[in-house]
Design a protein around this nucleic acid. Structure first.
Lengths: 127, 127
DNA sequence: GCTTGCCTTGACGCCGGTGGCAGGGCCTAG
DNA sequence: CTAGGCCCTGCCACCGGCGTCAAGGCAAGC
């Protein structure tokens, strides 16, 4: 499979695949003419990368998962390194969730106050 | 008040203040020598900017709040434009909170599955 | 007059994942 | 032989809120 086909089947671009390769996530063989040659397994790898990216992982975080898949595991998240990253990310997400909930509450507070303020002003001018 | 003093009192940098000015959030007078001259009121404006930035607003979103303050209001969030931005941002935050909760659940699921997987393997090799 | 410390404008760097273009090689069909 | 479609490498652009450096003007004390 050449890069264009893999890109199409993975729903991404050739530019992106070359970028992943540059960052050590995908390692195709090379044809004698220099073309990248991918085997079927790489499709799963790319899917794994895409779904982890979509969840907010960085390419560095994803590397263990790819290695895990490539080591023959059924899923990328069963290896110790992946689990470590999962734990860390989960903690990050939970922290961020808390912060975001605070932000939400503050926004609600400001909105409520603004509306209240307006009603007071509304009473003053007897509207 | 010159830019350095305002920066110190607002807990930020001169670079940052010039950046805000470039984006229409702060408008100091100029001394004859070209130096920026700020009055006391700008300190509150800068504080408003900083606190809104900290909550995740972009500079564009903040502009109405600054205008509101500058119009003589006690708080930057009581004007209609500010309220509109608040509503929009609140909606964004709530949406993002939901997405992030989904992500958290997926991470938890993967972690749980990975641990379960390991226990099964552990049983197989009778550890 | 010289140093020191503030001020001025302008411009590049960063981060991370991608888009997109330039300039060129390879392969196949007509 | 040529046209078209794939491939290659390398580099600039983007977003946003700054950090940071360069090169220079201004003010004040010695």
């Amino acid at each position: 499979m050449l890069i264009g086909e893999l890109a199409a089947r993975a729903g991404t671009s050739t530019r992106t695949l070359r970028y992943y390769e540059q960052h050590g996530l995908v390692e195709p063989r090379r044809d004698t003419n220099g073309y990248r040659r991918y085997d079927e397994a790489e499709l799963r790898v790319v899917h794994e990368i895409r779904s982890l990216l979509a969840v907010g992982f960085g390419l560095d975080d994803i590397r263990p998962f790819v290695a895990c898949l490539r080591a023959g595991n059924a899923a990328g998240h069963v290896c110790p390194d992946s689990v470590a990253v999962l734990r860390r990310k989960l903690a990050e997400v939970e922290t961020y969730l808390d912060q975001l909930a605070d932000v939400r509450d503050r926004l609600r507070g400001q909105l409520a106050q603004a509306i209240e303020e307006r009603e007071i002003r509304c009473l003053k001018i007897r509207c």
